[in-house]
Design a protein around this nucleic acid. Sequence first.
DNA 1: CCTACCGATCGGTAGG
DNA 2: CCTACCGATCGGTAGG
Lengths: 206, 206
Amino acid sequence: MATSPSPRPTRAAGDRNRARITGTAAELASIEGIDGLSIGRLADATGLAKSSIHALFGSKEDLQLATIDAARDSFIAEVVAPALAAAPPGRDRLLALCEGFLSYVERRVFPGGCFFVGAAAELGSRPGRVHDEVARVQRQWADLLEREATTAVDSGELPAGTDPQQLSFELGVILAGTNIVSVLHDDLGAVERARSAVRRALGYGA
Amino acid sequence: MATSPSPRPTRAAGDRNRARITGTAAELASIEGIDGLSIGRLADATGLAKSSIHALFGSKEDLQLATIDAARDSFIAEVVAPALAAAPPGRDRLLALCEGFLSYVERRVFPGGCFFVGAAAELGSRPGRVHDEVARVQRQWADLLEREATTAVDSGELPAGTDPQQLSFELGVILAGTNIVSVLHDDLGAVERARSAVRRALGYGA
DNA sequence: CCTACCGATCGGTAGG
DNA sequence: CCTACCGATCGGTAGG
């Protein structure tokens, strides 16, 4: 009557489960918020017991930090890496990053719109480790844009006298604002208008 | 032993209380979110019993709708009305509206940043009456900007060929994006950079 | 506008 | 990774 032994979960299986949980958590959090998402609903969505999620991640805050990490990986894979592969440093890459972001919003890579715009809006005025981690990722993105803008100015691809920090700031807030407006009104026209704005700001088709 | 009769609340007193509750609710919601805000915490903050808030507003959804109304009144009083009073229709008024918004973010009229940017980000992908009301207010703001942009183009204050819808879209997303970045990093420099962006977009100091 | 409740859900823990 | 719990808090209602 010996049944097959209940398989003891391996380390790799645990990692796979953790990745599946944080992936689902990032999707849900883009809709319900990173704080609005509850461990109970996440357990339902993944088919696990609530206490299993606690066992795998510790506290809710630790789960949130792991979720931010997973969302950052998605963002890099969907927006950053393709732009770096598609265009050389400078103006072309800056355009590719902006268009990559807009495509990612358009395709609803996260069902509730950009995870980080949502998290930044939600946690902006609530101090803590989760806030700080979101701020850190946002700053990395802003720095990336600024670096490419600097290269573009230094190489003469953008008019001398262009302030790279000011230009990259404007692009960043246009992208974030567009995500909000596009999701709120379920309006892809906003993404199209943002494409025009970005191209004009970078001097394409002028 | 007749004590002074317990004063029966008048209609006016009820209205005053309702206004005090929705005002506090809008402040708290700008930090914790319009859904994250609980009736229990709102009761604590106002010194009322939870059930009193239910008695005055009905359901949580009705309270949220009343809170949006109160926040809209604040926005009009702090941003829209001063700009309408300070500048004639057209380009100057468009600038006054944008600078009024940036000043309102800078002054933290709502402690967690613009109530409507927060609510739009939070509710963008969650259908319902509250979402629809936030979307309606956002559209009124966008329409206001577009109207002034149209006047500015028609009167020749902005270059012929300027698309008023595109221009007002760009201004709107810059303002929304700036609110998020400025609150997230507690950085008033973002507001200053947005002022530069708005002035350049409108051809001031060019 | 209050006290006194309701069932449901929250994050988290014990113990295996 | 599970069952079985914990106290706290959620939105809401009865009844005054």
